[in-house]
Structure formats: structure tokens, C-alpha cells
Design a protein around this nucleic acid. Structure first.
Lengths: 118, 118
DNA sequence: CATACTGTGTAGTATATACTACACACTCCA
DNA sequence: TGGAGTGTGTAGTATATACTACACAGTATG
């Protein structure tokens, strides 16, 4: 039931398969400046997700998107915060729509947005 | 600099103009089951935003979207969390795009999504 | 002018957050 | 077979969170 923990454990193990010497729990913890035992507990959901600074450090080490990691930890990134602040109603509407939107439609939407069609 | 506080104070005062007797700080605090002084401090940003339960109570009283209020408080709602969990990459992409997307494009996007064109 | 509201300041507290420190058990391989 | 590496368990702590309780000052109304 620990989204954040599961996510980073999966990600780390994935990287570890490719480069075992770099992505052990101890090495990753060291890179992120936290105790290995602490990271272990976070990955297994025995500890709530860490603070913003630590999450961003982990995002860097694990080559992950910090907005996603923060969100999985139940925290809102500064970028997302600015978007919501600027257009709260858009944000509320988007959540309502995305909840039930089929994947295919979402993918097409994102592709078009990215390609500047909007 | 207190997004959450500013937002709910504006909202409350707006409602207060229409119905002064119902939307005083004291009445709203009472409805949300918190101390008036606490709400006062939150509205002025002297106190960090309250917990999830209190935010949802305030959303109800102030007739606001709870996803927005939670996000302004730096917290991720369950609905948003589910979306991110299901499609982390979509979410990351969406944030990147929305940051610089002009309002007109966003509005058109949302309208179309809402109308089922997606 | 009293009393009934408005919002605010000060002081305090239980619980959760965000970690550290270090010992322990296991596996691998030289 | 022993040392280097893997992850984990227990114990503890400073700081922040998420509030309560209540006294106080101002305004408005009867």
C-alpha cells in the first residue's frame, strides 16, 4: 500500500540489474545523503515518505521525475503548485476528466500538446 | 506568500459579502470544527496549512474543490494520487506542458476533453 | 452604555515527521 | 574461511505539525 516506497524500490532494482555496483541500497542512500536503514524502511513502507529535499535527491540518483516522486509521496512540487495557483479551476477540471479518461485518449492528448498543436 | 491562506480568506470574504451571518470567521471555524484563532492564523499564513481532514472540512463549508485546496496546501488528494500512480509519465509530461501553455490553449483543451472529444 | 458580535495575540501540548547511529544476519567469492 | 558486500531491526531524537484554550481589542447595534 506504500506507493512511494514500491515505486522507488522497483526503480532502484531495475537500475541495479543493469549496474549492480552503483545501485545497491547502500550506494543510493549514500548518494542521497541518508542512512541505508532509513532508505530500506522507506522502500518497504515502514516509514512515511521522506522530506522534499530527500525526495529530490532520490529523484536525481534514480534518474526519475521529481514531480512524480513528490506526488507519489503526497507532496506537491513547486511547478505543480504554480500551475494550480494560476489556474485552480483548470486543475480541478483536469483531475475530474483524467480520472475516467481512457489511456488512448490521454496519450493522443499529450502527444498533441507536446507537438504544439495547442 | 501563503497560497492556501490567501485563497481561503478570499473565498470566505467573497461568501461573507453575500451572507455575512453565515460566513464569519467564527462560523466557518465552527462548521469545520476548529478554533477561530487557528483559522485566523491559517488565513494569514502565520500557521502552515492544516491537515487533510480539516482542509476537506473547509472545502465543504466554503463550497470549494477539495483537490484544489489540498494542492494549494502542498498535499496531493487521493484522486490525484490514483491518476499519478496509474500514469506517472503522463502526469510528468502534463506538468511540463502546462507550465508554459497559454491560457487560450488550455481552455480549449479542457473544453474539448469535457465535451467527450477525447 | 452594554452586550454581541467581529477578528487576533499569546501560550501551550500531543503526536507525527524526518531523520541518525549502530548492531545484526545473510550471501558471495577470492 | 574471512572479509566485503548485501539488506534489516531496534532505539533514540530534534523539529515540525496540527491543533486547543482563552484572554484581548475593536466595531456595530439596540
Amino acid at each position: 500500500m506504500s506507493q512511494f516506497g514500491d515505486y522507488i524500490r522497483n526503480r532502484r532494482e531495475e537500475l541495479q540489474k543493469a549496474k549492480p555496483s552503483i545501485f545497491s541500497l547502500r550506494k543510493v542512500a549514500q548518494e542521497a545523503n541518508i542512512e541505508p536503514s532509513y532508505l530500506s524502511k522507506i522502500e518497504r513502507g515502514l516509514q512515511p515518505p521522506p522530506g522534499q529535499a530527500t525526495i529530490e535527491a532520490l529523484a536525481l540518483v534514480l534518474e526519475e521525475d521529481k514531480d512524480v516522486l513528490l506526488a507519489l509521496a503526497g507532496k506537491v512540487s513547486d511547478d505543480l503548485s504554480k500551475i494550480i495557483q494560476k489556474r485552480p479551476k483548470l486543475f480541478a477540471g483536469l483531475i475530474r476528466e483524467l480520472k475516467d479518461m481512457p489511456d488512448k485518449a490521454v496519450l493522443r492528448l499529450v502527444r498533441e500538446v507536446r507537438d504544439g498543436e495547442w
